[in-house]
Simulated assay, not measured.
Amino acid sequence: MYRFLVLFASLVLVITTASNDKIDASPVLKIGSEGQAITELQFRLHTVGYYNLPIDKNFGKATYNAVQRFQKYNGLHSDGIVGPRTWAKLKKLSVNKKELSMLARVIYAEARGEDYKGQVAVGAVVMNRLQSPKFPNTLKGVIMEPNAFSAVKDGQYWLIPNQTAFKAAKAAVKGVDPTGNAFFYFNPDVSKSVWFKTRTATKKIGNHLFTK
């Protein structure tokens, strides 16, 4: 029994360590840092409106100032150094290039028949889930969560999004949210789900009713 407990504890330690390594995989960045991680950092800062210069691989003064502004606005120590806490907050509020494409895909698949506001609203729901502890903590996890989006389940997610979907995705990432902080939406003329009727409605936008 003792050996079993020791082996079990060791296994838990290995799993925990591996998980922590995965969480802390993003490098600490500061002025003078170079490399591909700077490109992701600048892209993420750009998607939330803090960095508007060309994307490169150099952490210079402009990137430092953008990081400081992001940190200050989001209640972090504004030292201009991108450590684990800044990365964690940035990954909750922004997207990288691949994630922006994923967001545009789900918007196009779920709401291409809606007007622009309706498309932004669907993107806002995805971002609201990303920022909530009740849902997966990555954008991919939110989108690919089983039964979360019908377009993923039926394959429409893999359609190529148009420029309007990308524009809506960028607006949603920047914080445009016409839904009233909704986590769900459905078409009341089509859906027969009783579950949706138990939710608190926030807004009706186009064909979709948005709920908490």
Rank of each mutant, 00 (worst) to 15 (best):
3 R>Y: 05
3 R>I: 14
6 V>W: 11
7 L>S: 13
9 A>D: 01
13 L>Q: 08
13 L>W: 04
14 V>I: 15
14 V>S: 11
15 I>H: 02
16 T>P: 01
22 K>I: 07
22 K>N: 06
23 I>P: 00
26 S>D: 11
28 V>F: 00
28 V>M: 03
31 I>C: 00
32 G>D: 00
34 E>Y: 03
35 G>D: 03
36 Q>Y: 10
36 Q>A: 11
40 E>V: 11
48 V>F: 11
48 V>L: 14
49 G>V: 06
51 Y>D: 06
52 N>A: 11
52 N>D: 14
55 I>P: 04
56 D>S: 13
57 K>L: 11
58 N>K: 14
58 N>D: 09
61 K>Q: 13
61 K>I: 10
66 A>W: 05
68 Q>H: 01
68 Q>F: 02
70 F>G: 05
71 Q>G: 07
72 K>S: 11
73 Y>T: 14
75 G>Y: 01
76 L>M: 10
78 S>Y: 07
80 G>F: 04
81 I>H: 02
83 G>W: 06
84 P>N: 15
85 R>E: 14
86 T>E: 09
90 L>P: 04
90 L>F: 09
91 K>F: 11
98 K>Q: 11
99 E>N: 10
104 A>Y: 09
110 E>H: 06
110 E>K: 05
113 G>T: 12
115 D>S: 08
115 D>W: 02
115 D>A: 08
122 V>F: 03
123 G>R: 13
124 A>R: 05
128 N>E: 08
128 N>L: 08
129 R>V: 05
129 R>G: 04
130 L>Y: 03
130 L>T: 01
133 P>I: 01
136 P>H: 01
139 L>Y: 02
144 M>C: 00
146 P>Q: 11
146 P>A: 13
147 N>H: 10
148 A>F: 02
150 S>Y: 12
150 S>A: 14
153 K>C: 07
155 G>Y: 10
156 Q>V: 10
158 W>G: 08
158 W>S: 15
160 I>V: 15
165 A>C: 07
166 F>K: 13
166 F>D: 08
169 A>R: 02
172 A>G: 03
176 V>G: 00
180 G>R: 04
180 G>Q: 05
181 N>V: 01
187 N>Q: 05
187 N>S: 08
192 K>Q: 12
194 V>K: 14
197 K>Q: 15
199 R>H: 14
205 I>K: 06
208 H>N: 14
210 F>P: 02
212 K>C: 01
